[in-house]
Design a protein around this nucleic acid. Sequence first.
DNA 1: ATGGTAGGTACCCTA
Length: 267
Amino acid sequence: MKIVTWNINSVRLRIETVLQMAREDSPDVICLQETKTPDEFFPVDAFKDAGYEHLAFKGMKGYNGVAFVSKTPLNNFKSYQRCSNDDCRHISVEVKKDGLDAPIELHNLYIPAGGYDADPILNPKFQHKLDFVDELTKWFPANVDKSKPVIAMGDMNIAPMEHDVWSHKQLLKVVSHTPEETTRFESFYQSMDFVDAIRKFVPEDEKLYTWWSYRAKDWLKADKGRRLDHMWVTKSLEPLLKSHKIRKDIRGWERPSDHAPVILELK
DNA sequence: ATGGTAGGTACCCTA
């Protein structure tokens, strides 16, 4: 079973890009963030024509939006309000897999970016980001059974490790890599005994990115990336981890998202 | 120290 998480930055603008990735990698489930469309305009038919007949999404006008697009049936679709906001940043489904007693519970997360200033008093968007992570840290262990197969993934907008950014020292005060964020992120991770699936394949002392800013003159040459997109699995799924792929090449396609698709394969 | 790009929407917000 192959699962992809990808911040697509408008699913309507980049529907052909998503379908091309799908033709090349044939994932079973595609998890998208920043779909940026109200549900009535989601490109359902384009996905169904491509063999992805099972969809579950929650979007809004202009901002945010998360979606599951799948070849196999999705059950028990839920969407959640976070920080008392109906802003379409967290949905979940269950997907059955042969050989597993319980279905796998998939959580699709789009944690707020947090604005520019890393000061929660001056910048309410940064406070919202910290509150969002704190809420997940309480909510997950209270509402999700960590002994079951669970995958939490998405654009988490936090690069937790030293080598998840191009310069640890230069980014310590930059939103996405501040100690205030990374310590909270660690608490969220620990609250469910999650396993950082992608880092199981790439050692912690190796640079690893999933996002490159649109603002760089030559994003590939500069390679000033950050690992903002994550796939975490509960302990019972760890023996099933088979392979991973970060499609950095897609960041170089025509009119790309600034995020690369992150692919996880399970045995 | 500064400004650099992109998308959606409506003339500005978020990333």
